[in-house]
Design a binder for these strands. Structure first.
Lengths: 206, 206
DNA sequence: TCGTTAATGTACGAAACGGTACATACATTG
DNA sequence: CAATGTATGTACCGTTTCGTACATTAACGA
């Protein structure tokens, strides 16, 4: 082996490749040997750093959620009018989802297993907060000014936006197959992005 | 063995159990031996009737999609005013999804594998049509009367409704975990059902 | 009734797969 | 520079898992 040692690089390379493989093949479908082969290190290191296949998956989940949390926190819409802010949040969320398909697919995998792994990662307990608080503030302003309806809360809105965005990525294969619509095509994406904005604004200003 | 032979019963029992197991464990996670053990027959029969694990999964997919297609066809909203019809369709779709979680989970599994299996089932080529045509008719009527906006098509609307409904089932574990909302609780379900109607109507009448 | 075929059960094999024992090389610190 | 712990590589083991060879039983028509 020519290159020198670098624990951090080994660790993160395993994490990156594992993210790919798990999101492509599911938890059971992913092969420890395949993950190892796709890196510049060996299977031995998976057990050294993560304890085993499940430990690796937990680490992958944690890293992925942490990445999305950081991005959500950078989402500032405080200086926009409520209606514009809502559309902005929806569109940014949309972009974020379609740009990180691996994460979405990973969440799908975890849901198949009914969130069994997620529960084991203590550090992910209150990770939902950021996305909700931003929306909460905008909704409160809109409610006061009378521009936005008052009978929905931040979680309702976030769920609707998430549902639409997640669907784009997570169900593109079957939906595309059944309705002959390629959801990854740029023009289709742009159209869906605009539609999402219309939906959320139309709903909340009704 | 006391009971007499019954090919059809054996076949359909395998199919039912396989539907459960595949939707609970994913394709790779599902064990042929477990599926067999949960039935009154043996593993041998899986190979006799379906050729193998993949053949069984294909049969499960086909049966599940066929079931949903039949239910969609029974969805008649021709005698309602466009706006009411839209809300009706949304609510019925919602009920249908939450009542058939196995199917939704199966679709998730298939999407993880990028629709690789679905493509092999010739008989599922044009299965999307029914859902779209019903919506198409309602949208056309609403467009003429000026009650519904004209810049969206049936697939757009169907996708939005599907996204929201699928999310309820497919992502209840992770979303529930992150936001402490039990999406399976009856009162929450009723609330989300109403919200979906509000969203679609608000959007299309904007 | 008897033979033929569809249906089913049993036992086993081969490969895949997760995991580990053991050896070793690098780096850091005293 | 010695020494000690961190990091890495190789070879292997035990089990699981899909699949199959072979035997057998029920049904049904000639």
């Amino acid at each position: 082996m020519v290159q020198s040692r670098d624990a951090e690089r080994t660790r993160s390379e395993l994490l990156d490749v594992a993210t790919e493989v798990f999101s492509e093949q599911g938890y059971s479908g992913a092969r420890v040997d395949e993950i190892a082969e796709r890196t510049r290190t060996t299977k031995r290191m998976i057990y050294y750093y993560f304890g085993g296949k499940e430990g690796l998956f937990l680490a992958v989940l944690e890293a992925a959620y942490r990445r999305i949390r950081d991005l959500e926190q950078g989402l500032h819409a405080g200086d926009l009018e409520p209606v514009d802010a809502i559309r902005r949040i929806a569109e940014l969320t949309f972009d974020h989802h379609v740009d990180h398909p691996d994460f979405i697919r990973l969440v799908s995998v975890e849901n198949i297993h009914r969130g069994r792994h997620l529960e084991k990662v203590e550090s992910l307990r209150e990770l939902g907060a950021p996305a909700a608080t931003v929306l909460d503030e905008v909704l409160a302003r809109g409610r006061e000014s009378g521009e936005l309806r008052a009978d929905v809360d931040a979680v309702d809105v976030h769920m609707m936006i998430s549902a639409y965005c997640v669907f784009q990525v997570a169900n593109s294969a079957t939906f595309g197959f059944l309705f002959g619509r390629d959801m990854l095509a740029p023009d289709v994406r742009a159209r869906h992005r605009r539609i999402l904005g219309d939906i959320v604004v139309g709903w909340l200003t009704a």
